[in-house]
């Protein structure tokens, strides 16, 4: 099993997910976050706190988002860790509204 960040996270960076993660498994690029499937324990703490519902447990992942499983594994391995809350990216609030949250 695994827990996956998907496209809704793009350009948000609210990082509420990072603040509740009991392991250290979030990695970030300029645009979004990814979960390291090797370190993640699938505790689910990050899922309900994401303000744009970007995170899914694999079993609940909508079929059109399955490619994100591989993306999370690949990107997390290549990117630096993020362990603390950061500032949302500029425009994050508008994007949140746009996504309907």
């Amino acid at each position: 099993m695994a827990t996956i960040v998907t496209d809704n996270c793009d350009l948000c960076r609210f990082t509420d997910c990072v603040t509740v993660c009991p392991m250290v498994c979030f990695h970030a690029d300029d645009k979004m976050l990814y979960i390291d499937p090797v370190v993640c324990i699938d505790c689910g703490a990050c899922i309900p706190v994401c303000p744009v519902r970007a995170i899914y447990e694999v079993k609940n992942l909508p079929p059109d988002k399955h490619h994100w499983i591989a993306i999370n594994a690949e990107r997390s391995a290549a990117l630096p860790l993020i362990t603390d809350k950061s500032q949302p990216l500029p425009g994050a609030l508008e994007r949140k509204k746009q996504l309907g949250f």
Partner: peptide, 8 residues
Amino acid sequence: GIIGTNRA
């Protein structure tokens, strides 16, 4: 809340 909730 669960374990991680206590972190924030």
